[in-house]
């Protein structure tokens, strides 16, 4: 059953040009991480960017850098879902025997697959860069901080679930994309500024999601390096301490994701697919 649903999504996606293009951009963005950052390194004297690509800091740094790429994945979900409305293919799938719950399940499984894919790609990229730039590699040092991949998976999953909800709510491709991008790049940050004096600002949905993979304290690593050039074996990167406690932040993200899926489910049950 689940294989069948996934296979249907596979036929739809792999032949869909916007998906291929977005995927191409996504790969390109990761390739940039592999090629461009080290290239920039040569332009800056004293500070070496390659310090950021060493185990175990590379996990945290790349996770933070690639977090916005999840927006691309959310855009894929929005496109493929809204297209089902404009092509009336939700209706076709219903007629031939899928239930409304299965229609939603199909998309959720696609989200899981894409999130896994993104996490694996990040893992592979970090591993490659780490192996290239680390002076001394032990298993313990290399695997330190890999827990961040789990957070990345959750972040990716959350982005796409929110994209799905926006798509089911608005139905129109362009409007959905605009709304989602506006929420991520404008509405949430502006609200954050407006609420800057209040603790509630840390509870905004997009903010909690970005806090999953927070800004590493880049300055600190350079300071540490300057003070004692040899201390490269332990993790130098730490998160800039702000926002909610970690557990609460993760809990809030899980809460928002569950809400998004629940709302998507309700919408899917009620929509008229004519």
């Amino acid at each position: 059953m689940i294989r069948r649903l996934l296979h249907i999504e596979q036929i739809k996606l792999l032949n869909y040009n916007p998906f291929r293009i977005t995927l191409g951009i996504y790969f390109l963005a990761f390739a940039l991480g592999l090629l461009i950052y080290p290239a920039i390194d040569k332009e800056i004297p004293v500070i070496s960017l390659s310090d950021l690509f060493r185990f175990p800091d590379v996990w945290l740094f790349l996770t933070w850098i690639t977090e916005p790429y999840n927006i691309l994945l959310a855009m894929v979900i929005i496109m493929i879902t809204t297209k089902e409305f404009s092509n009336h293919t939700f209706k076709t799938q219903l007629i031939f025997g899928l239930s409304r719950t299965e229609l939603l399940l199909q998309k959720l499984m696609l989200i899981v697959v894409l999130a896994l894919f993104a996490t694996l790609l990040l893992g592979a990229t970090s591993l490659t860069l780490g192996l290239i730039y680390s002076y001394k590699i032990t298993f313990k040092i290399a695997m330190d901080n890999t827990y961040i991949l789990l957070r990345y998976f959750l972040s990716s999953f959350t982005y796409m679930s929110m994209g799905l909800l926006v798509a089911l709510l608005i139905k129109n491709t362009a409007m959905s994309l605009l709304t989602f991008l506006a929420l991520r790049t404008f509405v949430d940050p502006v609200l954050f500024l407006i609420l800057r004096k209040y603790e509630v600002k840390w509870y905004l949905p997009m903010r909690t999601t970005t806090q999953l993979t927070p800004v590493p304290n880049v300055i600190e690593i350079f300071e540490k390096k300057m003070n004692s050039p040899d201390s490269i074996n332990e993790s130098a990167l730490e998160f800039v301490p702000e926002g909610l406690p970690d557990w609460l932040n993760i809990l809030m993200v899980l809460l928002y994701t569950s809400l998004a899926i629940w709302a998507s489910y309700r919408l899917m049950q009620r929509r008229r697919f004519v």
């Binding site: 036929i11 739809k12 032949n15 869909y16 040009n17 092509n87 009336h88 293919t89 209706k91 076709t92 007629i95």
Partner: peptide
């Protein structure tokens, strides 16, 4: 039912 709807790009 009414006009058939399929994926136009497939």
């Amino acid at each position: 039912i009414e006009t058939p709807h399929f994926y136009p790009y497939l």
